[in-house]
Structures are given as structure tokens and as C-alpha cells.
Amino acid sequence: MSKLHDTWGTRLFGVINYLLLAGAAFLCILPLINVLAVSLSSSHAANANLVGLWPVDFTIQSYKVILSRPEVLKAFWISTERTLLGVLLNNVLTILMAYPLAKSAKQFTGRHVYMWGMIFVMLFNGGLVPTYIIVHDLGLLNSMWALVLPGAVPIFSVILMMNFLKQLPSEIEEAAFMDGASYFTSLSRIIVPLSMPVIATVTLFHFVGHWNDWFSGLLYMTDISKYPLQTMLQSVVKGNDIMTLDAAKLYADVSDRTLKGAQVFVTALPILVLYPFLQKYFTKGIVLGSVKG
């Protein structure tokens, strides 16, 4: 009797559990599906508030309008360029900093000084205005470098990779050192190939960080034609982008609402395309980061 009762209780619990989780997942994806459907609907349907989870009067006119604007294509290119440059710089600096920091203070005099120097700026920084003044005084305003140089050292990634390297047995390098190899040779021939899983993880961290960043564009680009895509979206979303409002009046099938939706998805596209990799490697990074050497 009690066994039967248990089974039913467990089953009921199981069903409720599945339903609640499915509901949570649905809530997470709902705004995306809804706005995607709006962006693919006619302006009439969108403004009459007829669109739920499926496009009404399906049309890709909004995307055509967005992608025919040279400003959008230019912003897409600026974002691509800064992401490639930024990821490259972040990766090189992560590797070059994590390797020495993973050595003991005996092998690397001053390790603690470097380490604390890095941790200090993680805890305390000059803040908005002083950083802006430095970037301004270095003559970086309106230049691509303002988007990549201030965040060139990704401290979190350095610590992540350092913890990974600390776990590697030191014998791995010893044979090479016996043969007279330099630290540079060991790093490029032995350590980097062994660290590929971590490098893949931090590469994706840096990719998402650069692609998603909109604030440095807003701060350091006084010329709006130099905005990266996310900063451009920011002004579209906040209603500061007059061109979008004009386009909404110019074409019959589109409205301010469908255009904004389309701009959101054009901006999110690279993240959505790479999402399966992002999910896998980000999860790995969390697990790697919580393992201490």
C-alpha cells in the first residue's frame, strides 16, 4: 500500500517538476520569440497588436530596410573588426600573463607583487571620469583602439588560465628545459598546445565581451558614424536614432516597432549562431574556474 502510494506521489511530483521547468524555460524564451515574430510581421499586424508567438502577414521587409542602410553595415563591420582585434589582444595578454604567474615565487621573483598589482585593480579602479580623461588624453577618442585597449588585460581570464596551468605537473616542461629550451619555447611548444581547452573557453569569453559591449562605444565615440553595432542599437532602442524613425515613415510595410525588433535580432545574430559553442565552453570555464590548484 505504502509502496504504491509512494510511486504515485513520486510520479505526481515528477510531472509537476517537468511542468514547472518547461514553464521556466518558456518564460525565458518568450520575449525572444515574441519580438522575433513582431519583426517578421507587417507593420499593420504589429501595430494592431495581433502578433503573439508567430508572425502575422509574414514579411522580411523590416530586415531588408535595416540591412540596406549603409550605417548598419558599417556598424556591423566596426563590431566585427573590434571583436577580432580585441579577442586577439585579450588572448595574447592572457597567455603571456598567466604563464609567468603560474610559476612559483622562487622561479619568478616578484610574482606576488605582480599578482597583487593585478588583484588591486580588480577591486578598486579610478572610475568613469578619470578613465575617460586618460583615454581622452592619450588621443584615443573616436579610434578603434579606445574600444580594445582599456580592457586589454582580462584579469578574470588570466586567473582562470593561471589556475589551470598550476595544475599541470611540472615534469611536462622539465625535459625541454634540460635540453636548454627557453621559457618562450616551452610556452609556445608545450604549454599552449596543452592549454587549448582553456584557450577556447577564454576566447569565447572575450568574443562575447567584445561583441556585447556597447558602453565604450557610447563613451569614447563622439562621432556616431563610428559606433559599433551594439551602441547603434542602444540609440535605436532608446529612440535617439532618427534614421530608424524616418525609415518607419518611408516604407509602408514597416513600423518603428518592427524595425526595432529586426535591429535587435541583427545585432544578436553572431551570439545566437555561436550559442551552442558558447554554452558548452562557458560551462567548462565555470567548472575550471572553481577548481583550485
Partner: peptide, 19 residues
Amino acid sequence: MIAPGVVFLILFSYLPLYG
């Protein structure tokens, strides 16, 4: 090896402290 990173930290993290 660590020098380039240190230069960036000095420029964009320590100089602003002076600001």
C-alpha cells in the same frame, strides 16, 4: 612576458587612479 600586460594595467588602471 608579463611586461606588455603590466604596461596596459599601468596605462588604463593605475593612471586613472591619479585622475
